[in-house]
Amino acid sequence: MEYSLNPHSQELLEQYRKNLPIYQKIEEVALQAIQHVIKELGISLSSMEHRIKTEKSLAGKLELKGGKYASINDITDLFGMRIITFYTDDVDKVAALVKRTFDVDWDESVDKRKAHELTSFGYNSLHYICRLPKSLANDPETPQLNEIRFEIQMRTALQHVWSTIEHDIGYKGSIKILPEYRRQFSRLAGMLELIDDEFSRLRTTMTDYRRQMQALVASGQLTEVPLNPSTFRNYLDMTPFKKLNQRIAASNQAEILPYPLMSFLPILEHFEMKTLGDVQHFIEENSDAAYQLALSQLAFTDIDIISESIGLQNLCIVETLKRGEGQEGIQLIFDTLNGRQTENKAMAKIMYEQAAILPFMQKSK
């Protein structure tokens, strides 16, 4: 394809064509390296984009400012990556990984976030100009692998969205923007920047809260730990129902199969339990009756495999009956665990009849 280029720019384009296989190798090595370290650190990304500049795109650039470059290697974005994070602090974490993984040309790199003036507008990203170190690519026959520079941009998802909107609207185009429109753009940019910062701050706060709750659970200070999905999950890690399950299993020498117990949380909340201390008290108060109920269930069977849920399920049934919620309350438990289905009513009837003859039921009459 022919382009309207002067002889110097045409020479640069020829250099690009000759180097294209090298750009492709750099892309392969760089992408694999950065994906590995990001996965190793456990950073969740919104996305990662990468591309080698097309010949047509390069020709357009050379038409405008080809005289700016002495050689094709002076153009640092022929291969580029854009790493998009969810949080602002993750941009700095990714930047640290990039510094550790590649050789960064600090003279050409720029943190456009710091160059942001109060009166300016727009979201900016962190741009590093990099080379592959010999630890990643070392081919004496192709020294250009370690000489050719490439660009890595790092920004948040909101910054990326704003950049796309800004480009689409044409804010930075040749048409002069009226002051009222500039103010509107600036207000929106400020709001997005605030949201970006607040999301990062909220994540830090929530992480600190989870760690605090985990420490309280581990230390046994359960009355100070509110009951919620996060704390209940940590509590289950302590296997609080293991002792009751083992006691039940011993009656038939049964094997206990794992079962996800998070589904019981809405039932505990129905009992108006507010803290893990309430759950612990619920276990201590109802364990003997739950064991008796299990014996009545297993007395005339040769079942040698039981679910890990049997202890907690029977604790809930006992609590329901103590509260006077009867067969309907037991059905509600099954509806919560299994979804509404006709079998739940029959199962609730059987459970109620098995429990009716037990000592704790006789005391409540």
Rank of each mutant, 00 (worst) to 15 (best):
M1Y: 04
Q10A: 10
L13D: 12
L20P: 03
V29T: 06
S44N: 05
M48L: 13
E49F: 09
E49T: 13
H50Q: 15
E55I: 14
E63Y: 06
G66M: 07
I72F: 02
F79V: 13
G80Y: 06
R82I: 15
I84R: 00
V91D: 01
A95F: 05
A96V: 15
V98I: 10
F102T: 14
D105W: 03
D105P: 02
K112W: 08
A115G: 08
S120A: 13
G122L: 12
S125R: 05
L126F: 05
L126M: 07
I129V: 14
K134V: 12
L136S: 06
A137E: 05
N138W: 08
T142P: 01
P143H: 05
I148L: 07
I148E: 01
A157M: 11
Q159K: 05
I169T: 12
K172Q: 14
K172R: 14
K176P: 04
K176E: 15
L178N: 14
P179I: 14
E180F: 10
S186T: 15
L188Y: 04
I195N: 02
S200N: 03
L202G: 03
T207V: 10
D208H: 03
Y209K: 03
V217E: 00
Q221P: 02
L227A: 03
P229N: 09
S230K: 02
K242V: 13
Q246F: 07
Q246I: 14
I256T: 04
M262A: 09
S263T: 12
L265G: 02
L265M: 09
L268S: 01
L276K: 01
Q280S: 09
Q297W: 07
T301I: 13
D302N: 10
I303V: 13
I305P: 00
I306R: 00
Q313I: 14
I317V: 15
V318S: 02
T320V: 09
L321M: 10
R323P: 02
L332Q: 07
F334I: 13
T342I: 08
K345P: 03
K345F: 09
M347I: 14
E353M: 12
A356E: 11
P359H: 10
M361C: 14
Q362H: 11
Q362Y: 06
